[in-house]
Computed example of a mutant assay.
Amino acid sequence: MELKQGDLRLLETDLARRLLGSTELARVAYVAKDGTPRVFPVMFHWTGDELVFGTFAGSAKIAALRTRPAVALTIDTAGPPPEVLLLRGQATVTDVDGILPEYAAAHHHYYGPEQGARNIADVAQSGRKMVRVGLVPDWVGTLDFVSRFPAALS
């Protein structure tokens, strides 16, 4: 039985697992304070239930996410054929003392243990305050032209 777009069980597909474990950037869409749409790329950490990224306190996107927490997110490859994971839900925004563990995990995953440790040390030394943004998806979609839509390649 083919899963319909929106079904949370799509997180269990090979495509979703591969993209959630990849070093592709996530692109997060949200509505800014002035009501206009915005998108920003971000490294992320997947906990198995929640997509988490860290950012620094005081950024405009944090105020916007606190006011309007609805977000859409994509993790994708350029292809051909492209592979796309789409997530939607309500972002949770939490102030953090010190380095956000998921931020450190993302840096180690994307840059490797040595460079990741240097990156985290630089942030820790700066004394900047961090903010944790989490997304537990309430809608999941995939665009997989190999297994779900192979006719599109013909």
Rank of each mutant, 00 (worst) to 15 (best):
L3P: 02
L3V: 03
D7H: 04
R9F: 11
R9T: 12
L10N: 08
L11P: 06
E12F: 08
T13L: 12
A16R: 01
G21S: 15
G21E: 15
S22N: 08
L25C: 07
V28S: 04
A29N: 09
A29F: 01
Y30D: 00
G35Q: 03
G35Y: 05
G35R: 05
G35M: 07
T36G: 01
P37H: 12
V39I: 15
V39A: 03
F40V: 06
P41I: 04
P41F: 04
M43K: 00
M43L: 01
M43E: 07
F44H: 04
H45G: 01
H45S: 07
W46I: 10
T47I: 12
G48I: 10
E50T: 13
E50P: 01
L51C: 04
T55P: 00
T55D: 01
A57H: 01
A57S: 09
G58S: 08
G58Q: 11
G58M: 09
K61C: 06
K61L: 09
K61N: 02
I62T: 10
I62Q: 01
A64T: 07
L65H: 12
L65M: 13
T67P: 00
T67R: 15
R68M: 05
P69Q: 08
A70D: 14
V71C: 04
I75S: 02
I75P: 02
I75M: 07
D76M: 11
D76G: 14
T77V: 12
T77R: 14
A78P: 05
A78T: 13
G79I: 14
P80D: 06
P82E: 08
V84R: 05
L85M: 08
L85A: 06
L87F: 07
L87T: 08
R88L: 06
G89C: 05
A91R: 03
A91H: 03
A91S: 06
T92V: 08
T92N: 07
T92M: 04
V93E: 05
T94P: 00
T94W: 06
V96R: 13
D97S: 14
I99P: 09
I99R: 09
L100W: 10
E102V: 11
E102M: 07
A104R: 15
A104C: 06
A105Y: 02
A105M: 02
A106R: 07
A106I: 09
A106D: 08
H108C: 01
H108A: 13
H109N: 12
H109L: 11
Y110L: 03
Y111P: 00
G112M: 11
P113T: 13
E114G: 09
E114L: 14
Q115G: 05
Q115Y: 11
G116P: 07
A117N: 10
A117P: 03
R118N: 09
N119M: 14
I120N: 01
A121Y: 04
A121C: 07
D122S: 14
A124L: 12
A124W: 10
S126I: 08
G127S: 12
G134R: 04
G134Q: 06
G134I: 03
V136C: 09
V136M: 07
P137W: 03
D138M: 10
D138V: 12
W139E: 08
T142F: 00
D144I: 06
D144Q: 08
F145I: 09
F145V: 05
V146Y: 04
V146H: 11
S147N: 13
P150H: 10
A152F: 12
